[in-house]
Simulated scan of single mutants.
Amino acid sequence: MTTDDITDDFTDLLDFPGGAELVAAGRVDPPSAGAVDAARAAVTRAADREAAVAPAALLRTRRLPRRRRLLVAAAAVAAIATGAVAYPVLDMGGEPAATASASQFLDGVAEVAADAPATEPAYWKVRVETDNQDDGKRTDTTYFDREGRVWSVDADGTVHEPPAGKEGKVKKWPVGEKWLTWPALEKLPTDEKALAALFSADPESRSQQVAILLEDAPVGPELRAALFRILADTPGMKLIGDVRDSKGRAGVAVEITRKAWYSTGPGEKVTHRTKDRYVVDPRTGLLLETKHRIVGQETPPDRYTWLEVGPADRVG
């Protein structure tokens, strides 16, 4: 092998957006363990998938661009954690572009989410710590079943049964103009384009509803992956980088600024800009924490720290 061959191989390996900047950055601190795990998992899955596809079929189905996207996303998960690479922006078809680093990271997380085991639980458990101006700081533990009935559990373990009949609260999640129950969520398409069409055309409103589903909804691996891909294609989504949530758990934060409003009285409301920050565990594809901060105000952000979200065999 000649020196030119080595140089060509090195150039090919770095043939992705930001590769030249990565070289120019020189030596940087290593990425976090979570970022490395996500990158390794994404590279392995991409290689396994493409190894199972014959070259002719690969060309016929035009999956090569997707493979390249996966490999670039995996490389980005490892590289962007250092903060050394300034990635270019993605073309969003005339809309304001999302930063490519955020898009690539979220695409990588989508691949992690897609490989999670599927379950068919009887109940879904959510334990969340909330800290906001209206309610103060508290921790709530709830369970709900496929009919949407909600159980709450006190800190001492006391279980509160859902009220009977119409008085009982039914758990639902927003998708576009509709509020869907657990069974209805299971009927949603897992193709990201078909799924995105069910939400608002406004990318800010769409991202907010998608994030609500990712926070605590009982969505399967394929649907969860599609939701992350919708966020990856959202204009204005920015990568913040490695952070720790309020419980000290390591994650990677992404952020978007959107229009919002709050009521000041009957028929009255004030519009403002809000920064929504989402802390994601790149090893699992779970949201660790959500913060909403009003731009230009000194008040602390509303915080939701997701302590436990997942299947349960029983209540309590």
Rank of each mutant, 00 (worst) to 15 (best):
A74D: 10
A75P: 06
A75E: 12
A75D: 13
A76K: 06
V77R: 11
A78P: 12
A79L: 15
I80Q: 14
A81V: 02
A81H: 15
A81F: 00
G83M: 10
G83D: 06
A84L: 04
A84S: 15
V85I: 13
V85R: 10
V85C: 14
V85Y: 13
Y87A: 12
Y87R: 11
Y87E: 12
Y87D: 09
P88L: 14
P88A: 15
V89R: 13
V89N: 08
L90K: 02
D91M: 10
D91F: 11
M92A: 11
M92I: 01
G93D: 07
G94I: 05
G94S: 09
E95M: 14
E95V: 09
E95Q: 14
P96M: 09
P96S: 12
A97G: 11
A97H: 09
A97Y: 11
A97R: 08
A98D: 02
T99S: 03
T99V: 10
S101V: 00
A102G: 06
S103R: 12
Q104N: 13
Q104S: 08
Q104D: 12
F105H: 09
F105Q: 07
F105T: 01
F105C: 06
L106G: 06
L106N: 04
L106H: 03
D107E: 11
D107Y: 07
D107F: 11
D107P: 00
G108W: 06
G108H: 07
V109Q: 04
V109G: 03
A110M: 03
A110V: 10
A110R: 04
A110H: 04
E111P: 02
E111M: 07
E111D: 09
E111K: 01
V112I: 15
V112D: 03
V112R: 10
V112K: 01
A113E: 08
A113G: 08
A114M: 02
A114I: 00
A114Q: 04
D115T: 06
A116T: 06
A116H: 00
A116L: 11
A116I: 01
P117W: 01
T119P: 02
T119K: 02
T119A: 07
T119I: 03
T119G: 03
T119M: 01
E120W: 06
E120F: 03
E120L: 05
E120N: 05
E120Q: 13
E120M: 04
P121F: 06
A122K: 07
A122E: 14
Y123Q: 05
Y123K: 01
W124A: 03
V126G: 12
V126H: 10
V126I: 13
R127L: 14
R127N: 10
V128A: 08
V128S: 01
